[in-house]
């Protein structure tokens, strides 16, 4: 990307012409909604954590799709960063969940209401 040219301008071919941006965005939105609903309805901390991962990846899909749509690497680069951070965060979050479990012998999020004003 030495010059300010997009991939399309450099003559790159479109990969799957039948699958449009709208498809990707639909998948992304669906995943995000599933994640959100799961997060709001479930009480198990691990499940809730998985739901946040789901929402995370939904955003990643949208980013990659837009990057491809605009023929710009920035989207994919960003997603790689997201994946890295998500891995680290997953390690920490699971460790936290283990610690919380040790305190109360349960995984229910309702057990933790210390922040009540």
């Amino acid at each position: 990307m030495s010059d300010a040219l997009t991939l399309a301008q450099q003559g790159w071919p479109a990969a799957f012409p039948a699958v449009t941006l709208a498809h990707y965005l639909f998948v992304s939105a669906a995943m995000f909604t599933v994640g959100l609903i799961g997060f709001l309805t479930r009480r198990n901390l691990i499940i809730m954590f998985l739901c946040t991962e789901l929402m995370f990846q939904a955003a990643g899909i949208a980013l990659v799709a837009f990057g491809r749509y605009h023929l710009d690497f920035s989207g994919q680069t960003f997603v790689i960063f997201i994946l890295t951070v998500a891995a680290a965060e997953a390690a920490m979050a699971l460790a936290l969940v283990v610690l919380l479990f040790r305190k109360r012998e349960t995984l229910s999020a309702d057990e933790w209401t210390e922040m009540k004003g």
């Binding site: 709001l40 933790w112 004003g117």
Partner: peptide, 18 residues
């Protein structure tokens, strides 16, 4: 006055955010 808005329930916060 504002204190009751802090319920301490995780899902409440999440719903609020959403």
């Amino acid at each position: 006055v504002l204190r009751p808005s802090q319920s301490g329930v995780l899902h409440g916060y999440a719903a609020g955010m959403a």
